[in-house]
Design a protein around this nucleic acid. Structure first.
Length: 226
DNA sequence: GCATTAACCACAG
DNA sequence: CTGTGGTTAATGC
């Protein structure tokens, strides 16, 4: 069976609100492809004429800003929309997205997406709910980055990967130490040191990229203290 | 002052 | 790319 928008196993809750006719319209105006780990899905500064929806996989959102190296905004797990702020709020991508695991992606023509927003209020409402949740998360992470210290942010990150991404306290960290540093806004040396400290204190077991969280409770305490 | 935190540099795997 | 050690600067008690 050919995969289409009707039988898509990764359909968004918003898209489930579309009528059959609208689903056909969506189907006719999007294209699906797969990106390997490390492949750039879209780039900061480039013109955006698509809404991007990831069906499976994991990506990083990153921005260069004014300095020479990249800052990671956040890690996003599929299924999820990407680039709505870039495409609807602007014409130029304000950030880059790169796959960190094999990721299957649907590109939806911007015009199609806009027509669906205008033509189906349940669809539009669910998209707004989604955007609101993300905005609140952004506020929270903004505050955390200002108020917490590097150990707390790293503890947060490790716990987030366990709870939100891998549903396990035992996982393979897909980011390098440098990327972790870029995510929490510190140096790679600090990440190395903090991870060693966590291991020494029996909070985690870490070998290269293999992470095993041994003491969630104490790690949460560190996260709370900052 | 002294302790803590973290950045920057250097060097070894 | 990583881990560690030394050094320095900023901040708080």
């Amino acid at each position: 069976m050919i995969e289409n928008c009707f039988n898509c196993k990764f359909k968004s809750f918003a898209a489930s609100k579309l009528t059959d006719e609208q689903t056909v319209y969506l189907c006719d105006n999007n294209s699906s492809t797969v990106f390997g780990a490390g492949e750039n899905i879209f780039k900061e500064g480039a013109l955006s004429l698509n809404i991007v929806y990831i069906k499976t996989g994991l990506v990083k959102l990153h921005m260069k800003g004014l300095t020479e190296h990249e800052h990671l905004i956040k890690i996003v797990k599929a299924p999820n929309y990407l680039g709505i702020p870039s495409s609807v709020g602007d014409k130029i991508n304000q950030y880059s997205v790169t796959a960190i695991e094999e990721t299957s992606v649907c590109f939806i023509a911007l015009e199609t997406f806009q027509n669906l927003l205008l033509g189906n209020k349940d669809f539009a409402y669910q998209i707004i709910v989604d955007l609101c949740k993300k905005e609140l998360e952004t506020y929270k992470s903004c505050l955390h980055k200002i108020q917490k210290q590097s150990a707390g942010l790293l503890a947060d990150t490790l716990l987030n990967f366990a709870s939100s991404i891998y549903d396990s306290t035992d996982y393979i960290m897909p980011l390098s130490r440098q990327e972790l540093a870029d995510l929490i806004g510190t140096s790679r040396e600090n990440v190395s040191r903090n991870l060693s400290e966590f291991q020494k204190d029996g909070l985690i077991h870490i070998d290269k990229k293999n992470v095993k969280i041994l003491d969630v409770k104490r790690l949460k305490t560190i996260s709370g203290l900052g």
